[in-house]
Structure formats: structure tokens, C-alpha cells
Nucleic acid binder design. Structure first.
Length: 106
RNA sequence: CGAGCGGGCUGCGCGGUCGCGGCGCACCAUGCGUGCGAUGAGGAAAGUCCGGGCAUCGCAGGGCAGGACGCCUGAUAACGUCAGGUGAAGGCGACUUUAAGGAAAGUGCAACAGAAAUAGACCGCCCGCAGCUUCCGUUUGAAUCGGUUGAACGUUCCCGCGUCCGCUCCGGAAAAUUCCGGGGAGGGGGAACUGCCUGCGAGCAAGGAUGGAAAGGCGAGGUAAGAGCUCACCGACGGGACGGUAACGCCCCGUGCCAUGUAAACCCCGUCCGAUGCAAGUUUGGGCUCCGUUUCACAUAGGGUUGCCCGCCCGAAGCGGAGCCGUGAAUAACGCUGGAGCCUAUCGGUGACGGUAGGCGUAGAUAAAUGACCGCGCUCGACAGAACCCGGCUUACAGGCCCGCUCGGAUC
RNA sequence: GCAGAAGUACCCAAGAGGCUCAAGGGGCUCCCCUGCUAAGGGAGUAGUGCUGGAUAACGGCAGCACGAGUUCGAAUCUCGUCUUCUGCG
């Protein structure tokens, strides 16, 4: 299952304005239907220093990668984690799987 | 063995599966493609505290303002950095720390305390002159108390001296808190002296509980009292010789000593600095040419020019139309990584560093690349993620390793 | 990424080398007023940590984001660190 990275600021604003949100444990998933599957991770400065932010982004990307095949429709996806003391791959993976499971089937 | 000082290196490793960034090669369905290959964060990448490259503006002309630095010599592209040295402070020592120019260029500040704070004479010490050396309650020549006073405590001599009073000396009696006899000074007036006190004048800066700091320290001589007034030692200042490129060191001579601290207060002296920063900036976004029009200005003016002035330059800005080439928009490409580069050897230098020779090709993203899982090992893994690039500084950091040195103890 | 500003008590804050010193409001506590409350009036609290003292009265030391330095003496001057905020396409 191939997917693309989402980069442009316009796309972010569009998804955040019109997309649907699924809150699930340690993160929030925002999605909006599009031609092909795109993904982006939102980690701002409030999450910590650069080492900590990079760690969160890597964990989220890896977790999403393992669940991307289960997406019911092609759409653009934003992943927004909650601020926490510690972040673990297993929690992210579990919650992304649950969030995708709650998406409506086309 | 114990305690300690200085310097350097390192910053989990190995294997497998899946995945990420740009790069190279190959393929065809030419795509937001697929496959293969090699490669891909640090000693601090951090803080953005200095310096430089680079870029744009101004046109590199001057001055003012402003800022930075500040022992000496060197290194360097440059530095506020580094190396070597000097002075000072600390440590038994190895060694460490050091914003370390100027306080007789000027200005400011120094609370409280203290006699006095950058200067003086309050107390004090000493000399001379002058005054006073006494009054009242109170009466009793003594004694006591109180008041007033600047002060209430004298000594000697002369004149005068009846009673009484206490003091004192001698002799006698008795037997004791006495008695008798004799003598002396003591109330008043005058003079002198001395001490206290007061006033005036002169000398001194030794002493005075303070303070961060009191016009060198300490000892001796000296003096009316004192004083670098004189002397020794130490310190300071000035001059000279020697050593050193220099900071400075050391020795000799001289001067009794022109005088607190603060310049991380203003300031003075010396050296240096144009401003802004890759979100700089370049190309495409539209540009060029021509025409019309509006506004400001039309010359001792106006506009532009870095904080200001001089100086310098010149018409400037906006809108509309026509012709030609072009149309992805906080985007795309460039800047963007080969550079004062890294490694090794060797030479010069105490060293920072420099020269020569050989080798290497070593991230380049832009919502921004290193992760997940499994297995094994161990000391169980700290601080932490490039964003134009270098040289430094500062700060953070689990541990591990190496080298040199000092002090103490023990043993040989 | 680059450039700049500010940190003082629970909150807002003045103080810009020395004396009352951490002013002054708000807040908080107590009293009055009221049937009760709000508003109003009056008085007080001064903070915090350590420490002396008797669990007191009354003191001492530290303390102005944190750590060093200059100075006889720093909230104030200098340097470093941390935190917060702002500007630049």
C-alpha cells in the first residue's frame, strides 16, 4: 500500500477545517476524502525539544505505515498526538488501528 | 596504597526483516513510477555570545554620535579566541584564578558610624597673657546637707584675735567613751603662690572606642608638647646601570614622601568597527519600449542617501492604454556545499601554528530524512538532531579508556 | 533560522548603588453595619525559607528568575544560564 506525504499549508488548513476527527486514546486522527492516500504528522514546539519532536514523528509514521493497508477509502490523514510524559510505539500503533477501524466504509 | 592536579581520546556493538531523505545506474505504463547500489547528524549539531567568508543597500569621502576591546610578545583570514611569558592573588605542592591601561586632565559618589571622609582642628597636648580661686540657706570659727555657679576642694606670709566651740600638741590626775593645766593653728582684712576653671593669642598633628578607607608602617633619638624633625629596616616615588623584543626583573643612588577608594560611575588615552542578515539575495511570477495623465518639486528649493551633519547624486512616484515575448505563486529553481576542508607522514617552531609530500571525496532536507520488530553480548547506553558555511567561546552530559605530574604513608 | 524585549509577595506592580526599606493597590483575616448577604466603613496581616526564644513577645540570617563577579556595600552595575513574550516571508 503506497501513500504520499502531505506538505502544503493549504492542504493542512483544508483538512483541519472540513475534515472529520476521530479521538482515540493517545492521539487524534483527522481525515478528508481525496484522490490518493496522503498523511501528515502535527508536532509543534509545545511537544518539547527537537530530539523529542523527531522521536514522536518517527513513532507516528511507523505506526501509521503498519496500518495503512486497512484504510477503507483513499483520503488525506492528519495525525495529532496528545501531549504526554512518555510516548511509546505500541500505544500509537494500537490507537491508530482502532481509529481506522472506526472510519466509515465507503 | 591513599589524597589530589593537569591534558587527551571515546560517546553501546553485531546480525536479520520492513521502512525514510537526497544521489548514481538500469527499466518502461513517462508517473507524485519500479528495481538495484552505495551513502546519510554532534562533541557539543545547542545558546546565538564574538570573529570572518558570502550577499544586498549605500558608493566606500570626512566628521560627530554610538559600540566593542584593554599587561607584553606572537599565532591567525579575523577575533572578545589561542599559545608563550610578566605582575598580582590562592595552594605544602603538582597547579589554579585573573575585564590586569589611566584616579597630580576634569566631574561625580563614599550611607551609617566617627572629633574629622579628602579635608579639618572637636576633645586633647604644650607655651604665654589676663581674670577667678568665691557666694547663699547658715545661725554655731568645727562637721553635715542643699542651692546657685564656669568652678564651690587649697598652700604660705603679714596685720588683727574678747567669750564660746570643736581639732591638735605637751604635762599631770584618775581609771577610762574622762577630768585639770598650758601651748598651737583655725572666724576677719591684705599679699603671693599653686591647682581647677574661664577668656584671648601662639604651637602640634603624637593619642581619641568609628570606619572598607583617617594624609606611609614600626622602633629609637629628639622636643615645651610634637612632627620624616633625624636615623635603621620595610614600603612608595624619581634617576641610572645590567638582563629581556617587550611587559618586567634585579642592583645601585637619590628624595623624607604632593596625599583614600571607586573608571563592571561619567570620562581620558590607545586599537578596531558602514548597515543588514541566506526569511540576505538572484531568476521566473511578468518584463521592455512608446504615449497620455495625476501628485510633489521646479533651483538659496525638493527628493534620494545609515543614527546625525557636511558632502554626493538627480527629477521622482503612481495610474491608464498600445505593441512584442510569457503565465504552478508565502511556490519553483539557484544560493546549497570542494572548503581558511579532512587524514597520514615529515620539516621549522617551547607552543599556538606554518611549509612540503601523499591520500580522501565526506548529509544537503524545506510539515523538514536514522525508526519499528526479532535475536545475541555487555558496563544496560548520558546530554542531545545539521537548516548558508567556517574559526572560537559558553553551557549540558551516563559512563569508559589513556598519558604526565604532586603530596603523604608503607615496603624494598 | 535570524533579530530583539522582559522576569520583584497569590495578582497588578513602584523602586535605578547606602537611610523606614523590598513603597502602593487588589486580595486575605477580624470587627461594625444588615433579619441574612452584597456594597460601604474601620482595624489588621506582611510575605517565603532556615534559625534563636517557651508553640510567646521580640529578634538573627538568607531572599528581588538562577549562578558567579566588581564594590566597603548590589533588587540596581558586569558576565553567564534559565524561562516567558514580540518582530522578520
Amino acid at each position: 500500500m503506497k501513500y504520499l506525504r502531505l506538505k502544503k499549508k493549504k492542504d493542512f488548513q483544508k483538512i483541519l477545517k472540513a475534515g472529520k476527527r476521530i479521538h482515540c486514546g493517545t492521539l487524534t486522527l483527522v481525515y478528508y476524502p481525496s484522490e490518493c492516500t496522503k498523511v501528515a504528522v502535527c508536532v509543534g514546539k509545545k511537544y518539547g525539544k527537537s530530539v523529542r519532536r523527531n522521536r514522536i514523528k518517527r513513532l507516528l509514521r511507523e505506526a501509521f505505515r503498519s496500518h495503512a493497508e486497512n484504510l477503507p477509502i483513499a483520503c488525506s490523514v492528519l495525525l495529532i498526538p496528545r501531549i504526554a510524559e512518555n510516548y511509546s510505539f505500541s500505544d500509537f500503533s494500537r490507537d491508530i488501528g482502532a481509529a481506522i477501524g472506526r472510519m466509515p466504509h465507503a
